[in-house]
Design a protein around this nucleic acid. Sequence first.
RNA 1: GGUCCCGUAGCUCAGCUGGAUAGAGCAGCAGCCUUCUAAGCUGUUGGUCGCAGGUUCGAGUCCUGCCGGGAUCGCCA
Length: 581
Amino acid sequence: MDVFALFAARVSNALQTLYPDLPADLLARIVVEPPRDAAHGDLSTNAAMIVAKPLGKNPREVATALVEQFKADADVTEVELAGPGFINFRLATPIWHQVLRSIATQGAEYGRSALGKGEAVNIEFVSANPTGPMHVGHTRGAVFGDTLASLMAFSGYDVTREYYINDAGSQIDTLARSTFLRYREALGEAIEIPSGFYPGEYLMPVGQALKDEFGDSLLTKAEPEVTAIVKGRVLAAMLDLIKKDLAQLGIHHDVFFSERTLHGEGGAIDATLKWLREEGMVYEGRLEPPKGKAPEEWEDREQTLFRATDYGDDIDRPLVKSDGTYTYFAADIAYHRNKFLRGFKHMINVLGADHSGYVKRLQAATKAVSLNAADMDVRICQLVRLLKNGEPFKMSKRSGDLVTLADVVEEVGADATRFMLMYRRNDASMDFDFALVKEQTKDNPVFYVQYAHARAYSIFKTAQRDLPALDVSHAALAAAEIERIVTPAELDLVRVLAAWPRTVAAAAVAHEPHRIAFYVHDLAAAFHSFWAKGKDDVSLRFVNSEDPKLTLARLALVDAVRQVIVNGLTILGVSAPEELS
RNA sequence: GGUCCCGUAGCUCAGCUGGAUAGAGCAGCAGCCUUCUAAGCUGUUGGUCGCAGGUUCGAGUCCUGCCGGGAUCGCCA
């Protein structure tokens, strides 16, 4: 149950009763939300102000009429006109009891919605080059994409998590050559790694495996054959490495899409370019050199261009390099056409800050290949600065000089990594302080939230100690006398719980999963706060050995809090421990 | 030079896609441990929402122009 959605519908109905001819798009702009100041009541709506102008009426006049409509509503104890035309409602206590009951009934499903109407969404994230282990720069996008995917799935979308493997470029040739060096090293040769090669030690096991499989026979085989073998082996190994890294954070993609499969004669890129030409989206022309860049490097030549400017990009984009091969973008157009042909009308790409210049052409490509039938949202994750006690932090165990994802997870754990990365908007750069993340105080939001969850369990243990005869099974809690929940402190907590469904829905629509992390933190704060009230006022404690029925009702409240924290942490991919070590 | 992102309390950040007197945490100050976990809670100080215009009933939020920080700019992926 979502009280805000419930009253949005009632407000809409009341308006239509008063003014039957209101257009639907106008009604859609009406918001029922918690007022910023709790003193204004439980719910507030801007309905009168939205509707007044088209009706040619004064907002307060419309609001007054609406207020009259709600005087008969038994769920409303107070309704009043405020400010320029707001209508504030105070709800009757039974509404909050219904919220608690619906949480008990829906459990893990509380907050789930059909918002997405089962529509297919493709979320492409990570897509790190398969040339080595994942480093911290990838981690934020990985966590963001995975959490967004969970959020969208919870909100009724049919989500596909996808990884685009950039396995076609010259970097893969370099990777193969680097691997071949490691192979020779495994055979006992002293090697020197030239600059431009991948120096990381993670290629050593691949070289060793090649030796185990082929002995020294690769040294004498013809070059193309060897390259093909080494490439295949090292790509598989790198992908395996990346999958293991991701798995450490609980991330699993549904589809790994290989760029290589798009290339080749008669392949998807050829087909896509042919199609683009037929649609008149490609032409031969010249580009202006970018201003502010050294013009000496610029080779003015006629090239094959995609009409990206027709779809909102700043310049038309080249599809063929000077050596005759396709540009990365040409493959990407084909890839996104492939996504569209697979049935995706909603696409989300999660990219790092270094790709922000790529956003417009990606959106242009998506519009073009779908003939404007698909939408593309690109979420940019800004840089993460690693710190330890405020000092820049570098650590290089596995690869060259970059801190890897595995290093981070090893250091602070998957839960903390995920939560901290989500406890910030994706488009703001952030500092990630190892020392803080490992701290077990309320300064550490991960700990703070998990502690609230553990505290809920602790209360149940206390109840069983003080009232051994009390049945606290799920069935007993569902049958508890919720009507005993009446104090303002308790009802404040229920109000936070009631905001969960609209928080999820708003976060899903905005593609902003960080709101889930903030909500869960707010809920934990409200719970800790209520718990502490039991210290000043013994009558507010959850467990009251004189009154088992009241205890049971309050345990139902505790269980509702526990459940909603679990639901939030589940979306975030963070565990909810029953007790903290 | 073009494009995109950011600029909110001393610090780190929210601000629910235009709503009411701009919020939280830390730091500072003042309190709370014979207590369901003090691993926590309560109160309080602190603001020209970078600057200047504009749009309207109403702007931290939208538009324009500046200032400052970051990313990026055909033949990397």
